[in-house]
Design a protein around this nucleic acid. Structure first.
Lengths: 111, 111
DNA sequence: ATCTTATATCGCAAATATACGATTAATAAA
DNA sequence: TTTATTAATCGTATATTTGCGATATAAGAT
């Protein structure tokens, strides 16, 4: 048992859930903050700022990358990560669309 | 090892991550859609609509409730869940604030 | 060529999440 | 009171996530 049934839901809901999942750990939110604050495309700085081991940070970066929220390029011996605003905007758009949709349909509190 | 270090991050980031986590499963997004579409405060309908067992749906409802996104009241032998718009708005506010904040700081794509 | 530095990946342990069936609890209906 | 209905909870199996140390990789420095 316990096969995950995510595929049984609509693609839209799966996408939104995936987006939310990428943001569902404070470390990943913190990483996005760091990336936005850096004026340059800085990489290993993140490890110094976060209270996590290098390998763990690398794992979180990988997840953000898989979700399409950041992009990474190799720059000599180091890697360079940046926020992928295009994908970010796209997902944020459908996210706030969902919310607006929910609100329009039912604003009242019934219980 | 492997103690989760979520507490090591700022309360704001923990809150946002918790909000995202509540939305990080398509079943929970679908539940919110159902709750918004129903004009009344309907409960067990959700189980019929979702491709999941009753106990599983109950578990997802509990999570949404723990996150404060929905409220539930007992109504005879059945339960009644509604979207908690107040909490929803509050969290959405800080969420879009984060995003706007990120964007203002760095809109360019550097890699 | 060797050493250093930066990062990714592997392997593992522990914690959480997902899902279900079975059971329980509580009310409504008979 | 007994029975049926609705939903929560328990127990359990499995899957996924989180985290770290160790190792591998790859490029720059010496």
């Amino acid at each position: 048992m316990a096969i995950h049934k995510k595929e049984a839901f609509s693609q839209k809901d799966q996408d939104l859930a995936g987006f939310a999942k990428a943001l569902s750990h404070p470390a990943r939110i913190a990483i996005l903050r760091v990336l936005a604050q850096q004026n340059e495309c800085i990489c290993g700085t993140i490890v110094d700022v976060l209270p996590l081991a290098q390998s763990t940070v690398s794992q979180h970066l990988k997840e953000l990358k898989n979700a399409g929220l950041i992009s990474g390029t190799v720059d000599g011996p180091r890697s360079c990560y940046c926020i992928n605003w295009k994908a970010f905007d796209k997902l944020m758009g459908s996210f706030s669309f969902l919310l607006q949709h929910l609100k329009i349909q039912n604003e009242k509190a019934c219980c």
